[in-house]
Nucleic acid binder design. Sequence first.
DNA 1: CCTACCGATCGGTAGG
DNA 2: CCTACCGATCGGTAGG
Lengths: 199, 199
Amino acid sequence: MAEERGYAKGRARRQQILEEAVRLFGEVGYRAASLRELAQRCGLSHPGLLHHVGDKESLLLAVLAHRDAADAAETGLLAAEGADRLDALVEVVRRNASRRAIVELHCVLSAEATAPDHPAHAFFVERYARTVASLASAFPGDADPVSAARRLVALVDGLQVQWLLDPDVDMAAELRRHVAGLRGAGDARLERADGRGRD
Amino acid sequence: MAEERGYAKGRARRQQILEEAVRLFGEVGYRAASLRELAQRCGLSHPGLLHHVGDKESLLLAVLAHRDAADAAETGLLAAEGADRLDALVEVVRRNASRRAIVELHCVLSAEATAPDHPAHAFFVERYARTVASLASAFPGDADPVSAARRLVALVDGLQVQWLLDPDVDMAAELRRHVAGLRGAGDARLERADGRGRD
DNA sequence: CCTACCGATCGGTAGG
DNA sequence: CCTACCGATCGGTAGG
């Protein structure tokens, strides 16, 4: 019982550390982030923090795995509701507009990790390949589904930077217009037959 | 004469410092970049470097101004040749594929500068507003030219991240497909009447 | 342009 | 989980 409470406390502490690390890495990036600053935000000494996370690089990989798991869970929920792939993406982007820390984390770390010697470089190379390949299946009729998916991912990333710099930018609305453009350009001119014209 | 040689040497040194700073800031960002590392790459001591640049923040602003001037000069040249605005953008992106350092600088600094307290924050807020407003005039027939311009800029930014992570990504080709899609969706179906079908 | 130095901060470890 | 410490490195200045 005492041990179980001990383990539960350890898990809660680790959760707190991961969430604060998401914030800090998003604010200043991985390289410029300090373990002392993070420890202070969590209310412990910096050797205390290191006891939980091992070292700085392990913490970074844990944060990325933590975010990946949360994103997969959300995507899974939307898929379970049988939503169209592109509509699900719009919904995720719409929700991200109320989660600045998570958007910052992705923008700052993906840019920082373009450096080949960055500890998260392989992670992001693999993640983009996976995301593009997965989204390509949402364009079955397209002449080049991988290209269409790549441009969609690029658009989302670029909109996030503009939104972080200017919160008046409406990421979801911009993405919706792009998707509408793709559908409008389809062989048959279905145009506003479904969706947006209704609500 | 001796003075003129002295001034010329100073200008050449400053040019060298700015170019090495573009590389270093692109590699690790502004916050994580060290003036000692930069000084070493320029072949001088770090107080020697500070003599030329004042302090670290002034160096950053000088680097941004330096790049802005070079970009404006290139855009001006393309405009003087009477190129279509969108074709000129494709051409700039095509050329950037052989200037990794410059693409890295933009991606890394723009992401880092989304933090409101970053010394380049105001610069990027202003630059995006200016770029989007300027490009909007390339969509005179569009229902929402600012939105079309914003999505175009977002696409270019996002493609740069993917290209930095995987050099096989063809930024110019992806951008061309996007532009072709926009033209194809125009009211009249002009499609391949001009341009791309020829060369 | 240099050497020499300032106070501050870094990631990580020793030892308990 | 802590205090105390390690060697390394930071931006910037003094003084020449």
